[in-house]
């Protein structure tokens, strides 16, 4: 009896919570479609004058025009592609470096583990954006690639710390000892036992890192350390619009809405993933 109650409860929990996943997936999916679409089509040529300078929103120019008379809506659409590129690139880099270091620390001797853990703590205390600024500054001028690499490296410390903690928990299990005794190599243990056990939590964390990467990229571009023109990053659009906020406030609002909606979509997706991956959390929150 008790078993069936639990199953029913968890199914109901899944139904109630899955809306976060659905809404998140719709928002992110929409942005992905828009981002991919800009590769072949935008309403106007994003680098050409298509209307008056600082024009108001109209049916032709949905978000008005910027100070060079370019269609802002087209630029915002391209910004979506840039944000998604930076986000994906950053979590791939952050994930690869972070998971590798985290696993190494989990398997390492006590001393090496302590050193790695302390190093990660220091890196994490160092705010992501500052680290990214430093890396961008030390590279040969800002570009989309340096922004991706910088944010990815900055994020890898957080991923590494999480991987280390999760992997250590798995490694302390009896079945790991059993597996080792029966002759499985350490690499085998990682592939068969560690990664399958820790990936749901890692995935949720990487999704959250994606959102943070999008914000970090926008901040870098806003500060003038992101991708140079013609890349219409949302951060740069906002920075350009700030100067003309007296005459054309829409330019300072529309790219921000696009950015915030993407980050909220990703966070909802991560939230939904967490609920799907871990039934015990459903009742809390």
């Amino acid at each position: 009896m008790s078993e069936s109650t639990i199953i029913i409860a968890s199914v109901e929990g899944k139904k109630r919570r899955s809306w976060t996943f659905t809404i998140g997936a719709i928002i992110v999916g929409l942005q992905v479609v828009i981002g991919l679409m800009t590769l072949i089509w935008t309403p106007f040529d994003p680098s050409a004058m298509s209307g008056g300078r600082l024009g108001a929103a109209s049916l032709v120019h949905l978000a008005g025009t910027d100070r060079l008379g370019r269609d802002l809506f087209s630029l915002i659409m391209i910004g979506s592609r840039i944000a998604l590129t930076v986000g994906s690139g950053a979590i791939v880099i952050g994930g690869l470096i972070g998971i590798t270091i985290g696993l190494l620390a989990a398997f390492a001797s006590k001393t090496l583990d302590d050193v790695l853990a302390a190093g990660l703590d220091i890196l994490i205390a160092f705010p992501t954006l500052l680290l990214a600024m430093l890396i961008v500054a030390s590279s040969d001028g800002a570009s989309l690639t340096t922004a991706i690499v910088a944010i990815g490296i900055a994020n890898s410390a957080i991923v590494a710390r999480l991987t280390r903690i999760l992997a250590k928990r798995v490694l302390s299990m009896d079945y790991i000892t059993a597996s080792r005794i029966s002759g499985t190599s350490w690499l085998g243990v990682v592939m068969i036992h560690v990664l399958p056990n820790i990936w749901p939590t890692l995935l949720v964390n990487l999704a959250l890192q994606f959102g943070l990467a999008v914000i970090a990229e926008a901040s870098l571009s806003y500060l003038g350390l992101g991708a140079p023109p013609p890349n219409a990053s949302w951060g740069r659009l906002l920075q350009e619009a700030q100067a003309t906020v007296y005459t054309a406030p829409l330019g300072a609002i529309a790219p921000g809405i696009a950015l915030v909606s993407l980050v909220i979509g990703i966070n909802l997706l991560a939230d939904g993933l967490r609920d799907l991956a871990d039934p015990t959390r459903r009742s809390r929150r």
């Binding site: 914000i215 619009a241 906020v245 300072a252 921000g256």
Partner: peptide, 20 residues
Amino acid sequence: LGIAVPVFWIGILLVTVFAV
């Protein structure tokens, strides 16, 4: 929602409303 908003955008919005 607040954690999804970059700090500089809030700044720009506040400037738009309270300064402009």
